[in-house]
């Protein structure tokens, strides 16, 4: 990956909730730039442009900050969302070099139709949405394509089985399950389980109440 996209940034002189809110209303996205032992700088980005680039999978950019000399390469480090969890309200950018080794979390993109999904009641589960890799900024993948076409019923795909791009190293747990084909339980089984757990008029056990009874007996 190259830092081919340039983010238009502006310095933010006044920080805080109210000023950040005003920036958002004006179509700007508050951000902070830090790293490489330099002081952090409060910035704003063009909200529409930035979110469009982030959603397309871009993570490394070039920015030109006023009073900071030449243009710098930055990496998207963190994103904050509003209470609805969809609108981006703030981003963290980190100063990086293209040959610097960093940790990244590319999203897993499953390719192919698993064989095991043809069985009745089989579903594909993916407990992990990403894996952690160590690589240079220049080699950072936007996403990882994972071939799951050979997964049969009750098969499990571990993180160590993912074909990684050249120059990247797996950091996250190699035994972590990234995809699995599970047979769904029959409805009758589920109903029986539900009845086992809680019957009509059942009341939960009160932990503290039982303790006081024991104490009074003792």
């Amino acid at each position: 990956m190259q830092s081919k996209h340039t983010l238009s940034v502006m310095r933010r002189d006044r920080t805080g909730t109210r000023y950040a809110r005003r920036e958002r209303q004006a179509g700007r996205l508050p951000a902070v730039l830090y790293g490489h032992g330099k002081d952090p700088v409060a910035l704003t980005l063009d909200a529409k442009e930035a979110v469009r680039l982030f959603e397309s999978g871009e993570r490394v950019f070039t920015v030109q900050v006023k009073d900071e000399g030449a243009s710098q390469t930055v990496m998207l480090k963190d994103v904050q969302f509003d209470y609805l969890g969809t609108n981006v309200v703030h981003v963290d950018l980190s100063r990086v070099d293209l040959d610097e080794i960093v940790e990244c979390h590319p999203e897993l993109h499953f390719v192919g139709e698993p064989i095991g999904l043809k069985a009745a009641g089989a579903i594909l589960t993916h407990p992990s949405l990403d894996v952690t890799l160590k690589c240079t900024v220049a080699n950072m993948p936007e996403r990882l394509d994972v071939d799951i076409s050979q997964l049969d019923e009750d098969d499990v795909l571990h993180a160590s089985q993912i074909a990684l791009p050249e120059g990247t190293e797996l950091v996250s747990d190699p035994d972590a399950v990234v995809a699995a084909i599970r047979a769904k339980k029959m409805e009758e089984d589920l109903d029986a389980e539900a009845q086992d757990v809680d019957g009509v008029g059942a009341e939960p056990e009160v932990i503290t109440e039982r303790k006081t009874e024991e104490e009074s007996e003792g």
Partner: peptide, 28 residues
């Protein structure tokens, strides 16, 4: 069957504040 906890610390509870926005459990 409607769900309920298996065991609780106290049988009854106060009403508590309702007017807040979700800060966790708010994404897929």
């Amino acid at each position: 069957m409607p769900r309920m906890p298996k065991r609780v610390k106290f049988r009854k509870e106060m009403r508590r504040v309702r007017e807040r926005k979700a800060t966790k459990g708010n994404f897929v």
